[in-house]
């Protein structure tokens, strides 16, 4: 992990949901703080893809925003190619931020409806000063449009003249316009039809191969994640519970929550269906369970799980945050057919 392009250590983000001080005094209630991201560590080697998966509300989109500087972290460190970015706002320092870009979830909200496509794609080149000359910039926009599978003439159109998949292509063209090395993709395909999802994913893989991009890919869709990832991190209530190479996660999931997620993938043969699978809802993140956050839903929980938070420990090729796995209490999963 020495040549990691992106290194995240102990990343934390808390949101203060407390009511005003005067109300708290009157009601004798304390502060209410949500630990949206609660000590996340990962590193992404250059040219690889790390995917973060988890249910909604587990903090994966917050990690994306923290990396891009859209919200300030409450603690921890974000290093990009050796430059510390925690505490620096979006766009600063420009020479580093130019090398990281983001693709958003909603292709309808991520493009300014009153701007022409050429201006949208050209904006990063203008503000980061990579193509200050308008004519030069326009040539680059045309090239980018054709690169992502649109035509140069589309630059004169407005975003509403395009379909969701085409808009996501515009979004990608904007993201690669400053020749970044690192792309954060926050559920880039979840608003698209399945057939269009495949096109966008193929385009992203092609980009990775041609431009040598590093991806942080955020998704709740394991099929998509399986297709694109080198490494997968599973998040639950603000913490990474398992981080492993993609084939490991699908073949030998260790954490009970990872196993639960994999079982939610529809399977025609209905194999691998145990009876003691955890059920239930994600607990309220304002008052997360003591000890291991997952213990109320976990079939293997014991007294230790209820009182003591597990550490993120290496287990084979993976890192797992689970007492049962560390103690060897958990029966190894039968080998799965990956994908």
């Amino acid at each position: 992990m020495t040549d990691a392009l992106v290194q995240v250590t102990g990343l934390k983000k808390t949101f203060d949901l407390s009511r005003p001080l005067i109300n708290r005094i009157l009601d004798r209630s304390g502060r209410q703080v949500v630990h949206a991201v609660d000590g996340v560590d990962f590193a992404i080697p250059r040219g690889q893809t790390l995917s973060l998966v988890g249910e909604s509300g587990c903090g994966k989109s917050t990690v994306a925003k923290l990396l891009m500087g859209l919200t300030a972290p409450s603690g921890g460190s974000i290093r990009f190619d050796g430059v510390e970015l925690a505490g620096r706002p979006a766009g600063s320092p420009p020479e580093t931020r130019r090398r990281m870009q983001m693709i958003f979830q909603d292709p309808y909200a991520s493009l300014n409806p009153r701007w022409r496509v050429a201006r949208i794609i050209g904006e990063p080149m203008k503000s980061y000063g990579t193509h200050p000359d308008p004519a030069d910039r326009r040539r680059e926009v045309d090239r980018l449009l054709e690169f992502v599978g649109l035509s140069a003439a589309d630059g004169e159109k407005f975003p509403h003249e395009f379909s969701g998949g085409q808009r996501q292509r515009i979004s990608i063209a904007r993201a690669i316009s400053t020749k970044p090395e690192f792309l954060v993709c926050d559920e880039p395909t979840s608003a698209l039809d399945v057939s269009v999802q495949a096109q966008i994913l193929n385009l992203m893989r092609e980009l990775q191969r041609e431009l040598g991009l590093t991806y942080l890919f955020i998704s709740h869709d394991l099929a998509v994640v399986n297709y694109i990832s080198d490494m997968i991190g599973v998040m639950y209530l603000g913490r990474l519970v398992e981080l492993a190479p993609a084939e490991e996660i699908f073949a030998r999931p260790q954490h009970p929550y990872t196993r639960l997620l994999l079982d939610t993938i529809p399977d025609i043969g209905m194999k691998n269906r145990d009876i003691d699978r955890p059920a239930g809802e994600v607990p309220n993140p304002i008052t997360p369970p003591l000890g291991c956050h997952f213990h109320p839903r976990c079939p293997h929980a014991d007294a230790r799980c209820r009182s003591e938070a597990p550490q993120f420990l290496p287990q084979g090729a993976a890192q797992v945050r689970c007492h049962a796995v560390a103690e060897g209490r958990l029966s190894p999963e039968p080998l799965r057919k990956a994908g």
Partner: peptide, 16 residues
């Protein structure tokens, strides 16, 4: 909205 976040990521000033 996300288009504003995209502009922030791209270093556009608040006034801009």
């Amino acid at each position: 909205k996300e288009y504003v976040q995209a502009a922030r990521i791209n270093g556009v000033s608040r006034a801009g």
